[in-house]
Amino acid sequence: MWNYTKAVHDHFLHPHNVGPLKDANAVGEVGSLTCGDALKLYLKINDKNIIEDAGFETFGCASAIASSSVLTDMVKGMSVDDALKLTNKDIANALGGLPKQKMHCSVMGQEALEAAIRQWKGEPPVPHAHEEGKLVCKCFGITDAQIIRAIRENNLKTVEEITNYTKAGGACGSCLDEISEILAAEIKQKPLKELKPLPRITNIQRMQLVLKTIDEDIRPRLAADGGDIELVDVEGKRVVVALKGRCAQCRVSDVTIHDLVERLLREHVEPGIVVEEA
């Protein structure tokens, strides 16, 4: 069960400003039935550019309804310019916070507000709508511009947070790599996979490292059980060894090879190493 604040419960159970405004001169619509939430925001803006009245219709969960309700309260009496400065964080804060998986509900409120004001100004629909910016998440129709905005306004640090705030990547997950790249570019860091390049070593270095690991780490452990090991061959990442002494007759020599020799070589030399018995 979600841990909603009292404000979320109150706004959900007794939402303010429900329903279309008859004399609205600005309407913003975001979301869809497919996505699982949708908000239609109605504003009445007077000739002094003040939002006189607001109303909403929302399809969605409790936090979506509460976000819409609190948003209409917030914008009433506000100038258009001030309203445009509102962020999704302001909406979430007005509710005393939202569970992190529900932050996208506050983003939806901010986007509907912006859409309504742009319609009133006679501007084309939201700048970060699908026409502008590149479509990243096909399941929920989220563009890179929307993702970047969520990252900047909420100081997001992980892909998971981006999904919580925008829903991007939350369904099939095929765009998660792309989201990761956008995030990396935003926080001025290279993507993780470039940060940690796989160590590249030459054959000679590999052989030396294998020998060193066998001498220093593996042989002493086998010796404790009366066994010994001999390196037979190193061929690329394939390491061939022979077990000696007690290990040679041991019924669990397979386990020794894999759980001990291979594990230690992977740890000390290279991850891809495969060990075989001669």
Binding site: W2, H9, F12, L13, G36, D37, G60, C61, A62, S63, A64, I65, Q101, K102, C139, F140, T163, K167, G170, A171
Partner: peptide, 26 residues
């Protein structure tokens, strides 16, 4: 999820296959 919370207020315990109630988005 909205249905569940309203039922909960009446003391009725149910569950939902909706995305929002599970924490997944689908």
């Amino acid at each position: 999820e909205a249905i569940l919370l309203m039922l909960d207020r009446l003391g009725i315990c149910a569950s939902s296959g909706s995305a929002c109630s599970s924490g997944s988005l689908e």
